[in-house]
Amino acid sequence: MTHAFVVPRVPSVDAVAVEERAAKFRTRSIKKDAKIKGLKLVASMIDLTTLEGMDTPGKVQMLCQKAISPGSGCPQVAAICVYPTLVPVAKAALKGTSIKVASVATYFPSGQASLKERTDEVRRAVEAGADEIDMVISRGDFLAGHYAKIDEEIRATREACGPAHLKVILETGELQTYDNVRLASQIAIDAGAHFIKTSTGKVSPGATMPVTLVMLEAIRDHFINTGKMVGMKPAGGIRDSKLAMHYLAMVKETLGDAWLSPDWFRFGASSLLNDVLMQLEKQSTGRYHSDRYLSLS
């Protein structure tokens, strides 16, 4: 290991200010044409996700069909996110489209395995065709203060990714404090993450607006200091499109328009797309819609 790790100096986070700032976005009212555009943008940023023990090839195929043609004038989603074993299924179903296949790896969701096992899993997922890898950091090591280990595992995973993009899941619901989130964000960014991501979706709370704001500010400060853009992916618990639109307002006002693109911002979600479809139907028909008319996820 030639790289000498130094714990990055990060500013401390004012929890009260962050929570108040984040709460302000929840009051935004986005209507009519702006709403329709916003809904479509949200849809185009979704990593349509299924990460259940009971996932079947059939379910993944169904999800891929939905990703390709969601209906109701809704654009295609950004990616399908599945476990490594289902990557070939998704890859085949999405052949000929621009929709990416993302795979969680590194012993998702706990990350409790040796670094070699974890990077081997990443290599297998990439060989199977994954365009993007969502890794988890070792929260236990982070909380024990072994920051160098976190740095090392992210660098090793990035290397194992080869051409695939790397998203680093901090699992903020287990990091206890905003200061920890800020530090973990910086470590991930410095170690070469293409995206930083809040949560696995397996721990509550998942993504929250204050936590996402802290991560967006880390991205912003990194951009100001180095000129390099890093992407952001909140995941876990973002189920309705109104909340998703408030996230977009937060992104726009923290990072600017450049990040309002699926290249730089994603939602990790399974039921959000259905809500977007219901809202688009409401906008076009004037009827409040029902998810009974939509597929399960």
Partner: peptide
């Protein structure tokens, strides 16, 4: 009107 139209 909104109740009558509501799909759910």
């Amino acid at each position: 009107p909104h109740a009558a139209k509501h799909m759910d």
